[in-house]
């Protein structure tokens, strides 16, 4: 069993009478890429801020690298790196200068610093841009510089808060390569995102809704654990058909994706029943075929379960 680098039990944070994070319990292993997936306001950033020791919990405990997030904040801060959505790079400095600056901030010793900067520039393919002003670089490149800056002091854990919002798909894939390479070197990576497709990149995910953990598993595991059958339906007037389907008790969720309906059945639901209902509604299906549920299907179904 790999060692846990983050262990959290009943972690809670209240702001006045609002519970932003509600009794979270989970652990993250060394070298894992662990994601927090949820909409805005679901408690992702609050959780990360507590794990970084920036925000004290209202209740519960959290240990990061074996250190308590309340009593041993200083020990934690030396061993973690943090990259926010608006990565704080200095536009009027070059990537090389930014890395040197952050190395100084994080207390990397003067003699180690130049070689460490060169090492990161090489590793993340940043040499060509190393001496241009950051302000003039494309978003994807800036993002990689920010990642390198957060990793300059070789932290045990990297926290990435919505890191790839707003970059193009090619840069995003390149960025995830960097994350995987870093994780393969033993660094644990914790990422927040509200994008379902981005969450597919994580080894394991915590699905969050209104401050609560509604599932914690690999993306495939979460979909599998749904235990429900997904059907893809092609029919005329799918928007009308959808209106008939959403209220059926044997249907867990239904949604329209372009011209196709995605219907998640409950145990008592069958393809035959689906065909019969659609025909009775005046929208007989051209086809009903099993399909793989998406992470969004899982999220919607699990959120609904948690609410009821």
């Amino acid at each position: 069993m790999p060692a846990a680098t983050v262990e959290v039990a009943e972690l809670t944070r209240r702001f006045g009478d609002f519970t932003a994070v509600d009794a979270l319990t989970f652990s993250v292993h060394r070298g894992e890429v662990f994601g927090f997936l949820g909409p805005n306001g679901s408690g992702k950033t609050t959780t990360i801020r507590m794990l970084c020791g920036i925000l004290p919990p209202s209740a519960g405990v959290a240990a990061v690298l074996g250190h308590d997030v309340v009593r041993e904040v200083d020990a934690i801060k030396r061993q973690i790196g943090y990259m926010s959505q608006r990565f704080a790079l200095y536009d009027e400095l070059t990537p090389r200068e930014n890395l040197r600056f952050y190395g100084g901030v994080y207390g990397v010793s003067g003699s180690d610093l130049p070689s460490r900067v060169t090492g990161l520039l090489d590793r993340f393919d940043l040499q060509a841009a190393a001496d241009r002003l950051c302000g003039s670089l494309p978003g994807g490149v800036r993002q990689r510089v920010a990642f390198a800056a957060a990793a300059i002091h070789q932290p045990e854990i990297l926290f990435l808060d919505e890191p790839t919002a707003a970059v193009d798909p090619a840069s995003r894939r390149a960025f995830w390569d960097m994350i995987y390479d870093t994780a393969a070197g033993g660094t644990t990576v914790l990422v927040t995102t509200h994008f379902m497709d981005e969450a597919e990149y994580c080894h394991r995910l915590a699905l969050m809704s209104r401050g609560r953990l509604i599932a914690c598993d690999s993306p495939a595991g979460i979909k599998h654990a749904l235990g429900a059958e997904m059907m893809e339906v092609v029919c005329d007037q799918p928007a009308r058909a959808l209106d008939f389907l959403v209220d059926q008790p044997w249907i867990r969720s239904a949604t329209l994706v372009g011209t196709r309906l995605h219907v998640l059945l409950r145990q008592e639901g069958t393809a035959e029943r689906l065909r019969a209902t659609l025909s009775a509604a005046g929208t007989p299906p051209h086809s009903v075929a099993p399909a793989a549920p998406s992470l969004e299907d899982a999220f919607v179904a699990l959120t609904a379960d948690a609410a009821s």
């Binding site: 909409p39 805005n40 809704s209 928007a239 949604t255 919607v300 959120t303």
Partner: peptide, 19 residues
């Protein structure tokens, strides 16, 4: 940034108005 359930609601509205 909208939760997935509201997001489906938004799309349902769009599909209806499209019709």
């Amino acid at each position: 940034g909208v939760d997935p359930i509201s997001r489906r609601d938004v799309w349902r509205i769009l599909y209806r108005l499209q019709a």
